[in-house]
Design a protein around this nucleic acid. Structure first.
Lengths: 210, 210
DNA sequence: CGCCGAAGTGGCACGTCGTGCCAGTATCGC
DNA sequence: GCGATACTGGCACGACGTGCCACTTCGGCG
C-alpha cells in the first residue's frame, strides 16, 4: 500500500511540479489566465517551455495540483477506511479530517486553494480547471464508494453518493472562497460536514427488501 | 417576458448555430474531438472558419448548445413558477416536465445529448465541455433558486440546493448515457426525479427559529 | 576508471488555435 | 432607391501544444 523509496529524482520532479504550479497560480491570480503565456510561467519556474509541457498537458492545468490536493487526500483516507464502518459516517469523518488543518503546511495548502478559487470567480479559464478537477475527482470517488458500499449497493445510488460527496467538498470550498475574509480555519470542515450530511440524508444505498 | 419578433436574421443565426453544433457533434462522436479541426467543422457546416469563431469561442464549445438545451429549458420553467409553490416541489415538477419528451423534436434533442455524453466517456475534451456546461448552469440556477426561496433563505442552503439540482440532472443523464440501450423515454425523468428527491431531502433552507 | 543505457531537459520546427483587422454583401429604416 | 447597420469571408499574426533530436546527468557493470 505504501510507496517506499521516494527516490532522489522523484522528489526533484515533485518539487519542480509544485514550483511550476505556484508560479502559475501567482501569475494567474495577478493578471488572469489568458493574459499569461506558457513562456512566462516556465521562465518564472526556471524551466524551459518544452519542459513545462512535459509536466502539464495545458497551460491551465499547471494549477491543478494546488486544487486536487484536498480531494486526493480525502480519497486516500477513504480507501483506508475499515470495511465495517458505515459509509456515510466514513465520508463525514474523513472529510472533516482532511479539511481541518493540522500543520502550517496544511494551512498553506488550503490558502493556495482558496486563493485560486477567489481568482477564478472572474476568470473563465480558471473556472474550467476547477470544473475539470472536480469531475475527475468524482469519477475516482465513485470507484471507492462502490467498493466500500459492497456489491449489494445500487449502482445509481453509488453514483448519487459520489456526486453528493464531491459537491459537498466543492460547495464548501467555494463558499469559503466567496467570503470576504477567510479567518476561521475550522470553517471549511464545518461547511463541508453540513453539506455532506444534508445532501446524503435521503439517499437509499440498498434496494428495498421485498 | 416573451421575446417578440424572432426576426429573419435572428432565425438564420440560430439555424446556423445549430447546424454548426450538429456538424461538430457528428465529427466529434466519430473521430474524437482533438482529431477534428475547426476548418473541418466549418466546411461541414458551410461557413468560413472565421465565422465559426464568431459563433463559438472555442472548437469544443460548438457542441454546447446540444448539451445546454435541457438545463436552459428547466431554468425558464422555474423562473415562471408561481411564487407560492414550494421550492422543492417546483424543482421536481419542472425537471420531470423538461425530461419527458412531448414531441419528436424533444426526443431528438434528448438523443443528441445522450449521444454526446456517450462519446464523451472516452474523450477528455468532450468531458470538459460537459463539466463547463454544468458549472455555468449551476451558477445561473443559483440566482433563480435565491429568488424563489426569498430573502429569508440561508445563502449557503441556496448554494446547496442549486448544486443538488444541477447534480441531479447531470447524474440522471449520465446514468442514461451509460446504459447500453436507451429504450425507455421515461427513464431520464424518473432517474432525475429520484436523484432530486434524495439529494434535497435533508436540506434546511431557512435558519432555525430561535 | 571508462563505457553505456536510461531518464530528464532544452531547442527547434511545425500544425493548429483563436483573434484583430479590413473588405464585401445582405437586411432594415428614411 | 440609399445610407446605416450587421453579418460574413479572407488574411495575417501571436500563442498553444507536440514530435523530434541533441545534450546532460545518474547509476550499474565489466
Amino acid at each position: 500500500m505504501e510507496s517506499r523509496a521516494p527516490s532522489l529524482t522523484e522528489r526533484r520532479k515533485a518539487a519542480t511540479q509544485l514550483e511550476i504550479a505556484k508560479a502559475a497560480a501567482r501569475l494567474f491570480a495577478d493578471r488572469g489566465a489568458d493574459a499569461v503565456t506558457a513562456e512566462e510561467i516556465a521562465k518564472q519556474a526556471g524551466v524551459a517551455v518544452r519542459t513545462f509541457y512535459r509536466y502539464f498537458r495545458t497551460k491551465e492545468d499547471a494549477v491543478a495540483p494546488l486544487l486536487t490536493v484536498g480531494a486526493g487526500h480525502w480519497r486516500a483516507l477513504l480507501a483506508a477506511a475499515e470495511p465495517q464502518e458505515e459509509l456515510l459516517d466514513a465520508l463525514e469523518r474523513t472529510i472533516v479530517e482532511v479539511l481541518t488543518p493540522r500543520s502550517d503546511a496544511d494551512l498553506e495548502s488550503l490558502r493556495w486553494t482558496l486563493g485560486l478559487l477567489r481568482a477564478s470567480a472572474d476568470d473563465p479559464a480558471l473556472q474550467f480547471v476547477w470544473f475539470r478537477v472536480n469531475g475527475e475527482s468524482e469519477a475516482q470517488l465513485r470507484d471507492i464508494v462502490a467498493t466500500l458500499a459492497g456489491p449489494d449497493a445500487e449502482p445509481y445510488a453509488v453514483r448519487l453518493v459520489a456526486a453528493a460527496a464531491t459537491v459537498a467538498l466543492r460547495v464548501a470550498l467555494e463558499a469559503c472562497a466567496a467570503e470576504e475574509s477567510f479567518s476561521d480555519p475550522g470553517a471549511p470542515a464545518a461547511l463541508a460536514s453540513r453539506a455532506l450530511r444534508e445532501l446524503t440524508a435521503g439517499v437509499e444505498l440498498y434496494p428495498a427488501r421485498a
